[in-house]
């Protein structure tokens, strides 16, 4: 067997949820996946045996070159505050701001990988007035440049690889790490925000089980309604880049399948949409955020046409929390109509 691909996983200004998500990996489980792809976890804060002394010694060995680090994985934002000191997150027992440890290790690791939207872009930790002066590794929200500069490249000649998502999906992480371990990931495999195109060449909309409601603009009015969540309840699935409805979560879940809006959590600054997350902002009754790659006038024309043609079945079911009219005969539909009238 060739030598293992060494990864070191650090957590900083985040919730640990991406680690928990990665532990949800199935068929096979996380440890089996790592074994199959010859990935060796030198250290992970939730999973490793090593105690604090051993861990601090490991960091020193990487810094002085005794141990080769193939990939540094960071989960959570880089905590730069207060006043740029990094004191909001000190690496316990070391007296060093975590920010400095990350900077030092990223210069040694062949690749640096941002696990989740916090490490990629700053994410939820940057919300509000960003009280902790959080940033991503190589982005601060949409702005290129975070802890590391816009032009920074790792010793392996790649920018920070942003496996964004809040949380990220176990498959997104395992696929990307396996590609790195196989030396099979290049710049062309990353999108303009340096996210793996494995999952960002898709829209959350793809495979959404509410597609028929979307086609006919049969919209949900309240939480738990079955209709499309785009017109009223804030769903950004037609713009959000991820394969959440084809690479499913915890069995066969996804946000849409769970009955609530996609909040575009793989994008920079998703945490500050400028409106209530679960209400669609509108101008003259028309949602502002329409699909990005289609002329607005055409969308509106098609929408009004399909709205005029919406079957009664979809109109009724869209605002119900269970299927009231199954696909069926005309007679059945007329019966329901009569019930509605009476």
């Amino acid at each position: 067997m060739s030598k293992p691909f060494n990864i070191l996983w650090l957590q900083s200004g985040g919730c640990g949820g991406c680690s928990m998500s990665v532990l949800n990996a199935e068929a096979p489980d996380l440890y089996s996946s790592l074994q199959i792809h010859n990935i060796n976890m030198l250290w992970h804060p939730s999973l490793s045996e090593a105690n604090s002394e051993e861990f601090l010694a490991l960091i020193a060995s990487i810094e002085n070159g005794d141990i080769v680090l193939d990939a540094l994985c960071l989960e959570g934002s880089v905590m730069q505050g207060p006043n740029g000191t990094g004191r909001f997150h000190m690496l316990g027992g070391s007296g060093r701001p975590m920010m400095k440890v990350i900077e030092s290790l990223s210069s040694k690791a062949n690749y640096t990988v941002a696990i989740g939207s916090c490490a990629a872009f700053g994410g939820i930790t940057m919300s509000g007035a960003n009280p902790s002066e959080a940033s991503g590794l190589q982005y601060t929200g949409h702005q290129p440049g975070g802890l590391l500069s816009e032009s920074w490249l790792s010793p392996g000649k790649l920018p920070v690889i942003n496996i964004a998502g809040c949380p990220t999906h176990p498959n997104w992480v395992i696929d990307t790490l396996a590609q790195l371990a196989m030396d099979d990931l290049s710049l062309e495999n990353l999108d303009s925000l340096k996210r793996p195109r494995n999952y960002t060449d898709h829209l959350v909309h793809h495979g959404c089980p509410r597609n028929e409601y979307y086609e006919f603009k049969a919209s949900a009015a309240e939480q738990s309604n079955l209709g499309c969540l785009m017109e009223n309840l804030g769903c950004m699935g037609t713009q959000a880049r991820a394969d959440c409805n084809t690479t499913l979560w915890n069995g066969d879940g996804s946000c849409l399948r769970g009955g609530y809006a996609c909040i575009n959590c793989t994008a920079p600054e998703f945490e500050e949409p400028g409106h209530c997350f679960t209400e669609t902002p509108k101008l003259a009754g028309i949602p502002i955020g329409l699909p990005t790659d289609m002329p607005k006038a055409w969308f509106i024309a098609l929408a009004s046409l399909s709205k005029a043609a919406t079957p009664k079945r979809l109109k009724v079911n869209a605002v119900s929390d269970h299927i009231r009219i199954p696909p069926g005969t005309k007679v059945h539909i007329e019966k329901i109509s009569k019930e509605d009238e009476s």
Binding site: C15, N250, G251, D252, G258, Y260, F277
Partner: peptide, 15 residues
């Protein structure tokens, strides 16, 4: 945790 996939869309971070 498939219970959360079915009843809450995903875990963690459900709406």
């Amino acid at each position: 945790l498939h219970l959360t996939g079915l009843l809450a869309g995903k875990w963690p971070h459900s709406l």
